[in-house]
Simulated assay, not measured.
Amino acid sequence: MPNIGDSKCILVVGATAGIGRALAKSLKALPSKPKVIVTGRRQERLNELAKEGFETAMVNIDTDRAGLKQFVDSIVSKYPEVDAVIFSAGIQHEFDFTKPETVDLDKLVSELNTNYTAIVTMITYFLPHFLKVASKGQPCFIVPITSGLGIVPGPWVPCYSATKAALHSYSISLNEQLRGTGVHVMEIMPPLVESELHDHQGKTPVLSKVWMPLDEYTKHEVDGLLRGDTFIPIGQTADNFEKFEKGKDEIARGSFKFIQSLNSS
């Protein structure tokens, strides 16, 4: 089974903090010694990672299609050997719809773009390169990082949960469409994990009592990537995946084959 250990060059989008940074460091330490490119919005953190031997690129993915196209083109041009991309960037806001006047629609749109639309856009722009590389025998990998809240939503973060559910659904469909091309989709599905994601909400002291330590999470994450698992649910998310999601991809595969047979008849 192809797995991330087969990669020669891995791009980690959103790697200046939290799970993205920890994952990038673990990937760089793999015995296969892939080149790891890290991106983020904070240049000072990218500078720190550059000192550790990472390739770096500054980008804010909450931008328009032209900006994302320019970013993808620049990566492919500078690193033609890139064969894997991991989408770790994400933002999370709380919205209270019982007080609709407090809902900041600009934040909501930004969350939707960062967590879903921009990722699908970048995947679309990366795919011609990946399909070409895969056609020559080098396996390629698209790795969205979703969330357990994409399976069982958190009503306090309704938009975040919806974006992760959308990305999870898209990942299933993308995996089916790319079956047999040599481009593999592996979806990482974290539980509540130690990170900076919640700092702006002021809940870190409370959440730190119940979240999964980052080191423990990262080990499970990398183990799944090295197995080549299509789905990598971790911690409580693994329980919810077993209860609500197991077998959904097989049903989707059957539906897709049926539609394909209709289109070819």
Rank of each mutant, 00 (worst) to 15 (best):
1 M>S: 10
4 I>C: 05
5 G>S: 14
13 V>M: 00
14 G>M: 00
16 T>G: 00
17 A>M: 08
19 I>D: 01
20 G>Y: 00
21 R>T: 01
21 R>F: 02
22 A>E: 13
23 L>R: 00
23 L>V: 13
23 L>D: 00
32 S>Y: 06
33 K>P: 01
33 K>F: 05
36 V>N: 00
38 V>P: 01
43 Q>V: 13
44 E>M: 06
48 E>W: 00
49 L>A: 07
52 E>H: 02
57 A>T: 04
59 V>F: 03
60 N>K: 13
63 T>K: 07
64 D>E: 12
65 R>Q: 14
66 A>C: 02
67 G>C: 02
68 L>W: 02
70 Q>G: 05
72 V>Q: 04
76 V>S: 03
77 S>P: 01
78 K>G: 08
81 E>F: 01
88 S>V: 02
88 S>Q: 01
93 H>D: 05
93 H>P: 01
95 F>A: 04
97 F>N: 02
97 F>L: 06
98 T>V: 12
98 T>C: 03
98 T>F: 07
98 T>R: 08
101 E>H: 14
103 V>D: 02
107 K>W: 12
113 N>W: 01
114 T>E: 05
116 Y>C: 08
117 T>D: 05
118 A>N: 03
118 A>S: 15
118 A>V: 05
126 F>K: 00
127 L>G: 07
128 P>E: 09
130 F>Y: 10
132 K>A: 08
133 V>T: 15
138 Q>M: 08
140 C>S: 14
143 V>L: 11
143 V>N: 07
144 P>H: 08
146 T>M: 10
146 T>R: 08
147 S>F: 05
147 S>Q: 14
148 G>F: 14
149 L>T: 15
150 G>H: 06
151 I>K: 03
152 V>I: 15
152 V>F: 03
155 P>N: 07
156 W>H: 12
156 W>F: 08
156 W>A: 12
158 P>M: 15
159 C>W: 00
165 A>K: 05
166 A>N: 09
169 S>G: 12
170 Y>G: 06
171 S>N: 12
171 S>K: 12
172 I>G: 09
172 I>Y: 10
173 S>I: 10
174 L>S: 12
174 L>M: 10
176 E>S: 15
176 E>A: 12
177 Q>K: 15
177 Q>D: 12
179 R>D: 06
179 R>A: 14
179 R>L: 11
181 T>I: 09
182 G>A: 14
183 V>H: 11
183 V>P: 05
184 H>E: 04
187 E>P: 03
188 I>R: 04
188 I>N: 10
190 P>S: 09
190 P>D: 14
194 E>S: 11
195 S>L: 04
195 S>I: 05
200 H>E: 02
204 T>A: 14
205 P>F: 07
205 P>M: 08
208 S>H: 13
209 K>P: 07
211 W>H: 11
212 M>A: 09
213 P>T: 13
216 E>K: 15
217 Y>D: 03
218 T>K: 10
220 H>E: 14
222 V>G: 07
224 G>N: 04
224 G>S: 06
226 L>M: 05
227 R>D: 09
227 R>Q: 13
230 T>M: 09
232 I>S: 03
236 Q>D: 06
238 A>I: 03
239 D>H: 09
239 D>G: 05
239 D>Q: 13
240 N>T: 13
244 F>P: 00
244 F>C: 02
244 F>H: 15
245 E>V: 15
245 E>L: 09
246 K>S: 10
248 K>D: 06
249 D>L: 09
250 E>T: 13
252 A>F: 15
257 K>I: 13
263 N>Y: 15
263 N>E: 08
265 S>R: 10
